[in-house]
Amino acid sequence: MESLMPPPVRRIAADRQATVAPAPSSNGGEPALDGAPARARGLSRPDRPRVPAIERMRAENLVLAYGGKPAVKGVSLPIRQGEVLALIGPSGCGKTTLLRSLNRLTELTPTATREGRILLDGQDVDQLEVTQLRRRISMVFQQPNPFPMSVFDNVAYALREQGKKRPGKKELAPQVEEALVRAGLFDEVRADLQHPALRLSGGQQQRLCIARALAARPEVLLLDEPCSALDPKSTEVIEELIVRLREEVAIVIVTHNLQQAYRVADNVAFMYLGDLVEYGPTDQIFHAPTQHRTREYVGGAFG
């Protein structure tokens, strides 16, 4: 029976040492651009100040399955504060599943099972109280999901419901405003904070969900395609926000937009059919990928 056991767990575990480089923590900014192929042309990667990187989370040998069917097959990754991590990969490769497992949201899917460890500040997340854990690790979903209440109540939701005491509206107002400003939404909804959130446009809803997650001041922020419905202007606001926030919050972003990954991420993980194919500093992934599948995927984007 042992021989029938499918290999992915062990195989990935074995060659993880090779592909998942112990990511450089101090020189995450701009590694050697020397051998940069021509496809890098036309890409602008803004210079930005380096911030000290601290490892906050670590996934070890993560295996996730839905009803026995594996969706993520043995992934190990570090997540650092100070460096944005981007997850890229074709549709259905398990990015969302991986992201959801980080704050144990997969436990809400009855068929989902998990194996492997996830550490937050060196502590196994399974040992942490689940609501406390999710307070520290907040998530913005792929589909905008504003609650059926007013814009204000949406942003104030976590602040109101998390704590042991319900703060009053006066207390909440500045925090709500700040979260909305950070998500670049405040100017648009200033006048109608009391309107139902479901009447906002898709892009506005997306930014509202970001504001909602920010309001609770999480330590880790998981963003699942936060800009999929946004215009370039709003995208820029969000990207600037991500870059600015990375100093105080560990950020993981899933994106299908490779330019975006290039712009905001310090490290990139490329996934394919549940496998973590390659992980490394952004420039390495985009300019000098070691795996041919990464090259194909990234090359296609800039070709």
Partner: peptide, 26 residues
């Protein structure tokens, strides 16, 4: 919709409050 209950759970709100503030409300 699951998106609402999961969204609330993802903000670190306990199961009872998710039920009460999102599901029962809806």
């Amino acid at each position: 919709p699951r998106g609402w209950t999961e969204g609330a759970a993802a903000l670190g709100v306990n199961r009872w409050r998710v039920m009460w503030t999102i599901s029962v409300r809806t």
